[in-house]
Amino acid sequence: MSSIFSKIVKGEIPCHKIAENEDYLAFLDVFPIAVGHTLVIPKKEIDYLFDLDDEMYSGLFLFAKSIVPALEKTVPCLRIGVSVIGLEVPHAHVHLLPLNSMSDADFSKKIKISQEELASLAERIRANL
């Protein structure tokens, strides 16, 4: 069964895309815990991060790293944190989180942000890539 992320990769579900290449995709989380909360995924559907082969695993983190400078330019924060939980969607993914404190990494607290605000934010991040 396809995950929601696989449907996003196939274009069956829209997303607020930040960047993509042949193997990876970065897009804004529609249920973010912080402004700029970005998901980075391999396009290949693999459930568990540690089931990725070494090349895909390292490529995922290098691709995520390439997004960070644009996030930092767009979203005022002290750091961009990285989180891997892997329970919410059965598709390997990395969370990039603009952080100002440890409490900003609390996944039980979602922020409200409109689709229009997400679209504008994605455009600004892409402009800083």
Results as ranks from 00 to 15, higher is better:
residue 34 A to L: 05
residue 4 I to W: 04
residue 123 E to K: 10
residue 82 V to M: 14
residue 53 D to C: 11
residue 112 K to R: 11
residue 103 S to G: 03
residue 97 L to N: 09
residue 64 A to I: 01
residue 87 L to K: 14
residue 9 V to L: 02
residue 105 A to T: 08
residue 67 I to A: 00
residue 46 I to S: 08
residue 104 D to E: 10
residue 20 E to M: 10
residue 80 I to G: 00
residue 31 F to G: 05
residue 72 E to G: 02
residue 45 E to Y: 03
residue 29 D to H: 12
residue 25 L to P: 13
residue 106 D to Q: 09
residue 60 L to R: 10
residue 103 S to C: 04
residue 115 Q to H: 13
residue 24 Y to S: 04
residue 96 L to G: 07
residue 129 L to K: 04
residue 121 L to N: 06
residue 88 E to P: 10
residue 21 N to S: 10
residue 60 L to F: 08
residue 37 H to V: 01
residue 65 K to Y: 09
residue 70 A to N: 03
residue 28 L to W: 01
residue 1 M to S: 15
residue 32 P to T: 05
residue 117 E to L: 06
residue 104 D to F: 04
residue 47 D to K: 15
residue 102 M to E: 14
residue 49 L to E: 03
residue 118 L to G: 01
residue 25 L to D: 12
residue 85 I to R: 13
residue 3 S to Y: 08
residue 29 D to K: 12
residue 70 A to E: 07
residue 102 M to I: 14
residue 108 S to Q: 09
residue 59 G to S: 13
residue 25 L to M: 15
residue 102 M to D: 14
residue 92 A to D: 04
residue 13 I to C: 02
residue 24 Y to K: 04
residue 45 E to W: 03
residue 76 P to G: 03
residue 53 D to R: 12
residue 13 I to Q: 02
residue 96 L to K: 07
residue 35 V to P: 11
residue 19 A to V: 01
residue 99 L to E: 07
residue 1 M to V: 14
residue 4 I to D: 10
residue 114 S to W: 07
residue 69 P to T: 13
residue 123 E to R: 06
residue 28 L to Y: 03
residue 19 A to T: 06
residue 77 C to V: 02
residue 115 Q to F: 10
residue 100 N to T: 11
residue 91 H to P: 13
residue 121 L to A: 04
residue 99 L to F: 05
residue 6 S to M: 11
residue 64 A to W: 00
residue 31 F to Y: 13
residue 53 D to P: 08
residue 112 K to I: 04
residue 10 K to I: 05
residue 55 E to F: 09
residue 87 L to W: 15
residue 81 G to N: 15
residue 117 E to I: 10
residue 66 S to K: 14
residue 107 F to I: 07
residue 96 L to W: 03
residue 68 V to P: 01
residue 64 A to G: 13
residue 15 C to P: 03
residue 127 A to H: 07
residue 9 V to W: 04
residue 81 G to S: 14
residue 28 L to D: 05
residue 56 M to Y: 12
residue 15 C to Y: 02
residue 23 D to L: 11
residue 98 P to H: 07
residue 101 S to V: 03
residue 118 L to E: 03
residue 55 E to C: 09
residue 62 L to Q: 15
residue 9 V to R: 06
residue 94 V to Q: 13
residue 118 L to A: 00
residue 20 E to Q: 15
residue 63 F to P: 00
residue 77 C to Q: 10
residue 41 I to F: 02
residue 16 H to N: 13
residue 48 Y to K: 12
residue 74 T to P: 11
residue 39 L to N: 05
residue 77 C to M: 09
residue 18 I to R: 02
residue 104 D to T: 01
residue 100 N to W: 11
residue 4 I to A: 09
residue 5 F to H: 04
residue 107 F to V: 05
residue 45 E to A: 11
residue 42 P to K: 04
residue 94 V to M: 08
